[in-house]
Design a protein around this nucleic acid. Structure first.
Lengths: 217, 217
DNA sequence: TTCCGGTTTAACCAATTCGTCAACTATATC
DNA sequence: GATATAGTTGACGAATTGGTTAAACCGGAA
């Protein structure tokens, strides 16, 4: 692997664990197996390195969500099945890059302006086959459609979106402490993740489906 | 107000905004309107100051939850009403100290061992009229009871607890960026909070109640 | 008044840590 | 083989910042 990449992945890990300010350039260098000066050779400053890592992480999630959704196509699915699929894919996209998601989450709190910039950048880079479908939109569209069709109860879709995000992202905040209290191994964790995902979609669907509607698949 | 208190509240604010490592002792001092040396006079080190702030914040939430719940008593309420009340009170307890909640959340991620220590401490200090009712327990008890009574569907209560926490806490992670994008004023924010709370309990109750059960109040 | 403990401050110290640089290596190109 | 370019390094510079200290302040007790 190229040095630049090695640095990026090491930085991702260290920033995720220690936070932007808690991370030490020296530690990133050591963890990447390169000299500290290399970080400055490629990224010129800590600030810059962090921004690149953050942008890459954000890009990553959005791309994974988009790819995975368009390859498992929503066409033909009813609102309930669509929502289930979309929510699951979101969650999976987060899980596929745990440190990346953590960094994004932290940036939400401490670096909102960076997030905004990165989001704008992602929108700008948008090509014609991806007309800036900033994923939130897609999910709320589906929810609204379901409501119009009387399959979902009339709910506040914005708030619901926040709830879905919350249920999904809490895993990343609570992970270290859960690890400490429960000491999960890799297998336990995989099982926990499956339960988490199932629990989210279960609560969600039962929570939004009209009572007389057909049960979901 | 005493200097010590002034420092604590200033530290709470600064730690919440900048994070443990992003915070500067000088800034805390200035914000508290005291000389930097005072911080060391009272707290001896940054590490220590942070720990005290963290422990106080944790104590705060737990106390608020406990107090508010025992004064609005659960006796006589059915499972549905109980859950609603308990969840609402949790949320309110979080909202009543936004910076405190943020610090706790950050500590969950970056300082799990501190959280554990603080939690143990809280349990130890427990008196006889508060037999270490670490709030999670209480909520899961109610949920289990509801399931036994066939009022709630048979769901994974641990996962559900995590979901409730997630839906409630996401507000604190997303707040800065929402602020940036939407620019909410105090009134907007109050309204948003009410909607948030309503949305949580709405999804939750519809999500866990057995279909044939009586609707909640 | 004097003394004394707790409080407060400005100036200072020391360590951490971000960042730089000049020199060295490796690889490719002519 | 000479030369240029990209990558790499250890040692160093310098700023930030956590932490210290000695002296001053101040209210109350003797």
């Amino acid at each position: 692997m190229e040095s630049r990449e090695k640095i990026m992945t090491a930085a991702l890990e260290v920033f995720a664990e220690k936070g932007k300010h808690g991370a030490r350039m020296e530690e990133i260098a050591k963890s990447a197996g390169v000299n500290k000066a290399m970080l400055y050779y490629f990224f010129s400053s800590k600030e810059n390195l962090f921004k690149e890592v953050l942008v890459k992480a954000l890009h990553g999630v959005f791309n994974r969500i988009r790819r995975t959704l368009q390859q498992s196509g929503l066409t033909g699915l009813g609102p309930a099945e669509s929502v289930k699929l979309v929510v699951e894919k979101h969650f999976e996209a987060f899980v596929q890059d745990v440190p990346g998601t953590k960094i994004v989450l932290e940036a939400f709190v401490h670096e909102p302006s960076e997030i905004k910039r990165a989001l704008d950048q992602i929108c700008t880079e948008t090509t014609r086959d991806n007309p800036c479908q900033l994923e939130p939109q897609r999910m709320t569209e589906i929810l609204k459609a379901g409501i119009v069709q009387k399959i979902f109860r009339p709910i506040d879709v914005s708030q619901l979106f926040v709830s879905i995000l919350g249920m999904s992202l809490i895993y990343f905040s609570a992970r270290p402490i859960a690890q400490l209290f429960l000491g999960l191994n890799a297998k336990d964790e995989k099982k926990f993740l499956e339960q988490r995902q199932a629990s989210i979609t279960d609560l969600l669907l039962h929570g939004i489906l009209e009572k007389e509607a057909t049960k979901h698949a």
